[in-house]
Design a protein around this nucleic acid. Structure first.
Lengths: 221, 221
DNA sequence: ACATCATTCAAGCGATAACTTGAACGTATA
DNA sequence: TATACGTTCAAGTTATCGCTTGAATGATGT
């Protein structure tokens, strides 16, 4: 066997500590929000419905595990992912759960295949087709998140504004919607509404975090 | 925001449950062993030094999380990874820890860079060079693990036997050693010893689990 | 049928994690 | 300087986890 068993044990303990940081519902949700860009404790507490003290504690736990970093800006403390690899870790976690946990597969099938129906668009495809003007790309996240970074050429159409802004879209041009991630429901909802109005709409396969992690260009402001 | 917050919460809870299954030192160690192939509870308890009841409980926890499957063979219950994707998950976990946790980086630097020194060999490289007879590939894991599957053309040389079998090797041919995984110490130790005897030796970048997960050919028996 | 062995179940104890509350700390604004 | 606000700290309660012990289950061999 391995001669020195100590360093291996130490390594296992460290890996388990990182995994344990991902082992709570609220922390997964916090990471999902932070995958969009850095956020203040107050914003995260509001988005998740946690108390500030509670959110702060979870964030510190994630920071201790090396998954987050924090910086101070005025009276706010802004947290952000320590590394784009964290997105990859969460992505692999989702894939594993989707394959091996029946309830997750069922959950996703019910809320995606059922409501979406059509095959989503791949990332590589999208860049070419957007530049050629063949598709209209809309970002249905809140404008705040759009401003922090979005797909080049995308138009910000928060889901709340969608119904009121239908006149902007050319019914002859296909619309591709994206939001936060593979399993965010914003784009699904947007596609469903657009189709109900007679538009040709599809959902982008992944969301902004995966886009960013893939090293594709990001526009800001 | 997302209209239906319930399914998202449920998804987060499921993901957290999977992560929590990885959140214990002993379970990470069990998975590391199971990445070699299926094992009985008794074998795992012996390998890890856990009591049988304790090992059984951890294994059941991993199974409930969807990471393991079990089958009965005579009086033994054999556990195995539910999916090769589990190896990927653990691999990404290690990469994340290595990048973002200082102590892991230090741990690995101390035990790999310090003792190994030379750049490890990539998998793609190895297949070609082994077939061309340019390198001798040795599997330094216990023979039991070798029998369950190994790199085609590799010779089983458990670390315990290495010193006694040095005469088998041609000093003019480079030796590549591999073991269980990127961070298993068996191959590192083997390379150190071979170099001390004047051989040209290198370590394969990954181990058997990664090899298997990459879909490369595996020889058995 | 009986004994044997591998595994699992169930109960109990100690340790750790999650959440709430209230106070302390730091920074900006009046 | 004083006040307000975002954030963190500290203490306390409840719930859950990890491990041990001893008994129950399931398959095998005599």
């Amino acid at each position: 066997m391995c001669k020195s068993t100590d360093p291996k044990r130490a390594l296992f303990a460290e890996l388990a500590a990182v995994a344990r940081a991902l082992g709570h519902e609220h922390r997964v949700e916090l990471l999902e929000h932070l995958a969009q860009g850095e956020r203040s404790v107050e914003a995260l507490a509001r988005l998740t419905g946690l108390s500030m003290a509670n959110a702060s504690q979870h964030l510190q736990q994630l920071r201790r595990a090396g998954l987050l970093e924090a910086r101070r800006d005025g009276k706010f403390v802004l947290y952000r992912l320590a590394d784009d690899g964290v997105v990859q870790l969460m992505s692999v976690l989702r894939q594993t759960a989707e394959r091996n946990v029946a309830s997750v597969g069922a959950l996703l099938a019910r809320y995606f295949d059922g409501r979406d129906g059509l095959e989503p668009v791949g990332r590589a495809d999208l860049v070419d087709r957007a530049q050629a003007g063949l598709v209209t790309v809309i970002d249905v996240r809140p404008r705040e998140e759009f401003d922090l970074g979005h797909v080049p050429g995308a138009v910000s159409v928060p889901l709340e504004e969608l119904d009121a802004r239908l006149a902007e879209f050319d019914p002859a041009t296909e619309i591709v919607a994206y939001c936060r991630g593979a399993y965010c429901l914003l784009a699904v909802e947007a596609v469903a509404r657009l189709r109900a109005r007679g538009f040709s709409a599809r959902r982008m396969e992944d969301g902004m975090p995966e886009w960013r992690a893939a090293g594709l260009p990001v526009a800001a402001g």
